[in-house]
Design a protein around this nucleic acid. Structure first.
Lengths: 135, 135
DNA sequence: GTTTAATAAGACTAATTTAGTCCTATTTCA
DNA sequence: TGAAATAGGACTAAATTAGTCTTATTAAAC
């Protein structure tokens, strides 16, 4: 597969929407949901996850909403993906703390190290792309 | 997600297994399946897909099996992934030939081009890694 | 020629993951 | 206190992946 889930798509769209709003006001989930035709509930959760990871900040209450919490040049693709994709490692066994036991194949390590290298390269790529660059 | 499926894992393990066999004889699916604890039927399909894409070559009949069809230096990770992952694009809408209609969100194009760029970078990475390098 | 052991391939089922929905609580401004 | 926003847990539906089963085809060996 290697696909990014809808959550990442929605996160990118949301961040772009929020970034475009330059009048100082925050943006509500409903505005984004309506504007981009994204399911409201799902989008809400994505926004909450982005908030937890400090990619955006939220304001509660009736005048609430979301705004960027950082300079678009200092937020990278990896921040967004990590906020939203529960396990984005290209394979299970290269997670931190995983041991031989977690591997179904006792010979798994034959490809484990190589794949870890590939993962590092992907990380590097995602870390090099700021949302200012790509959106 | 961004995970590679088991098929890619099995493909890499199989290619490594075949590459290690240097006595000129071909390797059977059963040998790989037994050696690495991979479900035989699933592995068979992976091997068939690799054969179709000329990553390996097959010999039918009772003395049959598989062997590499190319120099390990000239086969890259992208060859293996493309042989085995039906759609490995990081998102739907950047497939060749997909139009606005294929996109659920009429504003999808807001992230389409950026994601296409990311895809290109990933492709570049996978194309630069030969199986000789990583296995 | 028949047997045997291999690849080739389609159809199907089970398991897992993703996508989406529903409901309730909490916050804060008017 | 009411209205409209975020926060978040539980649940269902849909899609994808993983694995199984079955049959056909191929080619060496007897």
């Amino acid at each position: 597969m290697l696909k990014l889930s809808k959550k990442t798509e929605y996160a990118l769209m949301a961040v772009k929407f929020i970034a475009k709003k330059t009048d100082g006001n925050s943006v509500t989930a409903k505005e984004i949901s309506d504007g981009y035709n994204i399911p409201y509930d799902l989008l809400s959760k994505v926004l909450q996850q982005l908030t937890k990871k400090k990619v955006i900040k939220s304001f509660q209450g009736i005048k609430g909403g979301y705004s960027l919490s950082k300079d678009p040049n200092s937020v990278t693709l990896i921040d967004i993906i990590r906020a939203v994709e529960p396990n984005y490692q290209i394979t299970e066994c290269i997670k931190d703390g995983s041991t031989e036991k977690d591997c179904t194949h006792f010979n798994c390590c034959m490809i484990r190290d190589p794949l870890a290298k590939v993962q590092k390269e992907i990380d590097k790529l995602f870390r090099s792309l700021t949302i200012h660059q790509i959106l």
